[in-house]
């Protein structure tokens, strides 16, 4: 479904991704790990289409189409979801209204009818229960006044509602205590399905204690220097990134 070949990308004229290649098949969970500055978040943002991230060369093929040519909203409507490292607060924008607009935009793009208020409301309640989020919290403005953990859980609610084909979690574990981490991981596990893939970007192995990836990739200096199974994450936990950094340089 996703085929990234020799991707080079820059932020503010500095090349961060330097020939990244990766293939994700439906239903797979891939973890992308690596040291700070290696390009993990850049990779996540390039896939979602953040404007400041410029693709210089290489390709990203998504279900047979050129993903890079599509605007961020079209990517989202076609099944890409980015769970933000720092979810943005939208003062005065009610969460319910925001998500109804998002779900409707996606349905319209797929040639489906917009949901009636009642239909969406039922879906909203069902998904809120599924990701165990406080209904009072989400009756407010989007992310406004949410704690770090609440914001991440709210991202999971959005993921559940938008039912993406490729969910990218950008450092979702950062700033979470163990309980919040476990809750978020549980949500992700429940949202796994044969036609939904995950790309989990993380610095630490700890999220992967609760969320077993099919593949682990080590991203150093803009390139994947090693790929393996879940056991690779354990190795990282034991030995750190030093030996990969050396490998990346050599």
């Amino acid at each position: 479904m996703l085929e990234v070949s020799n991707l080079h990308a820059s932020v503010a004229d500095t090349e961060i991704l330097k020939g990244l290649s990766l293939t994700v098949n439906p239903g797979e969970v891939h973890a992308v790990m690596g040291p700070n500055g290696g390009g993990k978040s850049t990779f996540a943002n390039v896939l979602a289409g953040r404007p400041a991230y410029v693709v210089n060369s290489g390709s990203v093929n998504y279900f047979g189409e050129d993903l890079i040519a599509k605007t961020p909203d079209v990517r989202a409507k076609e099944g890409i979801f980015l769970a933000f490292q720092y979810p943005v607060e939208l003062p005065g924008v009610r969460f319910w209204q925001f998500m109804k607009a998002a779900v409707d935009a996606k349905r319209k793009h797929a040639g489906e009818k917009e949901l009636a208020v009642r239909e969406f409301d039922n879906l909203w309640k069902e998904k809120a229960t599924q990701v165990k989020i406080d209904p009072e919290l989400i009756s407010r403005s989007v992310n406004e006044g949410f704690s770090g953990g609440e914001k991440k859980r709210a991202e999971m609610l959005q993921l559940a509602l938008l039912e993406p084909k490729l969910a990218i979690l950008d450092e979702t574990d950062s700033g979470l205590d163990v309980d919040a981490l476990r809750t978020v991981a549980t949500s992700v596990n429940e949202l796994r399905s044969p036609d939904r893939s995950f790309l989990v970007v993380t610095h630490y192995q700890r999220l992967l204690n609760y969320l077993t990836p099919d593949f682990v990739h080590i991203l150093v200096d803009g390139r994947i220097v090693e790929s393996g199974g879940a056991e690779l994450a354990v190795t990282v936990e034991d030995t750190g990134y030093d030996r990969f950094i050396k490998a990346g340089v050599s």
Partner: peptide, 26 residues
């Protein structure tokens, strides 16, 4: 706020809808 706009675009809202929602909320 460009971050707010990108956040909304990344959920599938087009620029016009994002703009309408943010200005109305303001």
């Amino acid at each position: 706020d460009e971050d707010a706009i990108f956040y909304m675009l990344s959920r599938g809202l087009d620029r016009e809808t994002a703009s309408r929602i943010l200005i109305t909320a303001y």
